[in-house]
Amino acid sequence: MMTVDDIFDDDRHNPPSERSLPWEETRGGVTVVVKPKPHWAEDMRAFRLDAREYCRYADWSAHGPRSRFYGHIDTSGDDVMLKARAMIAREIADGFWD
């Protein structure tokens, strides 16, 4: 039986543009959680792990911690990871992952 961590580890083997789960990246002492790109979006978003701020992933890739971050009313990187882990845990409990 797969665990939540196994599923996240398996997803990290894909290139960033093909990932379906969020992942953490750290540069210059700043950690963000990258939220995968939905089919309709122009770019992915990188949310600061401990603050309700985000930037475009392309900016993060090019500039790291010098990227321009924008305030977000209700989402931090920690929120993104918690929601994704809870979703996977529910799917495991419902028998979708064997």
Rank of each mutant, 00 (worst) to 15 (best):
V32M: 07
V34C: 03
R56M: 10
G95P: 06
F96K: 15
P36V: 01
G28D: 15
Y57S: 01
V30Y: 06
S20E: 12
V34Q: 02
E53W: 06
K83M: 08
H39V: 12
V32H: 03
D50E: 14
R27I: 05
P38V: 11
Y54E: 02
M81F: 05
S20C: 09
V30K: 13
D59P: 03
E25G: 05
D74S: 14
V34F: 04
D94M: 10
E24P: 05
W97R: 14
P36W: 00
R52F: 11
G29P: 04
I73D: 14
V34H: 01
M87F: 09
D6W: 08
R56E: 09
P65W: 07
R56C: 07
A86T: 10
A41D: 13
S61T: 13
G29W: 09
A62Y: 07
L82K: 15
H13F: 10
F47V: 01
I92R: 06
V34K: 00
G64V: 00
R52G: 04
A93N: 12
A86W: 06
A51R: 06
N14A: 14
V33D: 00
V34N: 01
D98K: 10
A41H: 09
V33W: 00
D6M: 10
R45Q: 11
D5N: 12
T75C: 12
D50I: 04
L49W: 05
E53T: 08
D6C: 06
D98R: 14
D94G: 13
E18N: 12
V33M: 05
R56G: 10
A89E: 13
M81Y: 02
E42Y: 13
G77K: 01
R27N: 03
D10E: 13
E24M: 14
L82I: 10
R68N: 11
D10G: 10
L82Y: 08
S76Q: 04
D6E: 14
D79N: 13
D94K: 12
H13V: 06
M87S: 12
V32C: 07
V4W: 01
S67V: 01
A84W: 00
V33N: 00
E91K: 13
N14H: 15
P15M: 07
R56N: 09
F96N: 11
A62G: 13
T75H: 10
R66F: 10
V80A: 02
R90G: 10
A51H: 09
P36Y: 01
D9F: 08
E91R: 15
K35W: 09
R68T: 14
Y54N: 03
A84Q: 00
S76T: 06
I88S: 02
R12Q: 15
P36Q: 04
H39I: 10
R27H: 10
E18Q: 15
K37Q: 15
M81I: 04
M44G: 07
K83G: 08
M2G: 04
I7M: 06
